[in-house]
Structure formats: C-alpha cells, structure tokens
Design a protein around this nucleic acid. Sequence first.
DNA 1: CAAACATATGCCGATAACGGCATTCGTCAA
DNA 2: TTGACGAATGCCGTTATCGGCATATGTTTG
Lengths: 138, 138
Amino acid sequence: MFVPMARAATTSDVFNAIAEPQRREILVLLRAGERPVTELAQELGMTQPGASKHLRVLREVGLVRDRKAGKQRLYRLDARELRPVHEWTGGFERFWNESFDRLDAYVQDLKQARRRSDRWQRQDGKRRRSQRRPTARS
Amino acid sequence: MFVPMARAATTSDVFNAIAEPQRREILVLLRAGERPVTELAQELGMTQPGASKHLRVLREVGLVRDRKAGKQRLYRLDARELRPVHEWTGGFERFWNESFDRLDAYVQDLKQARRRSDRWQRQDGKRRRSQRRPTARS
DNA sequence: CAAACATATGCCGATAACGGCATTCGTCAA
DNA sequence: TTGACGAATGCCGTTATCGGCATATGTTTG
C-alpha cells in the first residue's frame, strides 16, 4: 500500500521556518533585542497564541532562544542557522551576476558582431537595433 | 464572520518555493544547464507529473524559465529571484559573526577583564575559559 | 491521419499549516 | 493560598501541499 505524505520530511527545517512572512518578521523584530511574546504578538497584529506557535517553530529549528525573566519569557535571536541559507543562495550568485540569461549573452554577441561588421561596411544610415524589447508582457 | 486562512497570501513567493527540498534540488541540478522534465524527474526519483508540478511552482516565482525544443521543454535556471533571499539572510550576518551570543560576549568581556587584571596581579595559573560550546545539539 | 513521445493538468487521499478561541500551566505578589 | 498575569497547548475549521495515477494537450514522425 502507498502512504502518500505531504512535504516529505520537510517540516522543521530552516528553509521552511523562514517561508512564513510572519516568522520572518519576528526574526527582524528580534534583531533589536530580546522581546516577550505579547509584545511580538502585538507588533504582528496577531493573538498571543498565534505568536507563541510561530516562536515554537523558530525555536525548534534553532533560530530563536528563550530565557525566563520573571513571569515573562524573553525571546532572542540566534541567527546561526540562517547562515546555511545564506550560503546556499550564495551558491547561485554567479548566475545572477554573470549574464545568467542566454538572451543577454545573445544580445551581447549581436552587438559585438555589429561593431565588427560596421568597421567593414560603413553604409546603412538607418537606425540599427530598434530597442529590441518585444513589447514585454502586457 | 471570521474567515480563517492558512498561510495568508504566502503561497507563491520565493521563500516558499525554496522551502521544498525537491525544488531546491531542481535548482541545483539546473546549475549544470538546461534540462528536460523527464530527466529531472528521474534524477529526483519521482514521477514526471511530480517534477512538472514543482517546476510550475518554480516558474511562477520566476526561478526557472522554459523554452520549447522539439517535443521537449527545456528548463533553465533564472536565479535572480534568489538574490532577495540572499540579501535578506545577509541582513543577519552580523549576528552570526559578531558575538551573536550573550554568552560569547560575556566570555569576551571576561577575557578582557582578566587581561587587564593580570597586568596588576600575576597569579592564578589555572586554565581560564573552558571551551564554552554548550554540547551542541546531540 | 495515426502512432509515439514529452509535458501538463485534473483528481484524489493523506496530511500539514495557520489562525482564533478556550483552557491549562507556571510564576509572582498580596 | 488565592488572584492576577504571561505564555503554552489543545481543539477546530479552512485551506494548502505533495505525491501518485489517469488523462489531456502538444509535437514530431511515419
């Protein structure tokens, strides 16, 4: 028998944790320093239990730590686990710098070819290369 | 009446797209160059429809583009949308470099204080600071 | 046109995600 | 101990996700 499963063993990894906008917002807020749950909930415009649940997820992947302070529980950032994400995306850096796009490369080639041939035949007063943007999505 | 919604308007942003291990894997595979769906499906150990669906998600957030090549459809990487993620995580860099941890900061302070006081009283041959790494997850 | 091949889409089942509410748990103070 | 307060947990309803299968769509070739 087949046992289908949703999102395999994904749950509870860092990529998943930061896929939630509210959780990202929490991390951003925590850059300013420790904060109790209620305060965070308020800034996020959600209920306290809601915030607590997000904080749980963040805690479980190690992005956040908590310490007791009286009856409060102060959460603070622990960004170390964000590093793998940074590095993973960094592995694609050359693809967004270096002409990632065949089209770009192609256009560059055309330009070069033009320049070369221009040196040989100097006629053709017409405007060459008429803003190639093909109407771009409408 | 209340209309609860799951993951708000999250769906279909880049963070969500790369939250899926298989989709990350696809991106990695595509670094090597264009690839048809079937090939990807095979390397991922999943069915062709499965791969197609992941590719759809990636396409919708702009991480991937496709071009027709005969009866095949070749997918290629377009990593530009990965940049925002890289930059967002980069915004936390100082928290994992610079003593993110109060404990570390504390230890640093201790070291400094020691050094200072050492200049005044030169005793205490004991080892100071015993590798504070707190057992790291087991 | 039909057959063969490559992809996309639709449907389904199982499960996870999110948010709110009610409630429990834990801690401090009177 | 009781009351007040902060935070966590449980439950529920709604929606999304993921995977597989069957099927549709599209393209090339005979």
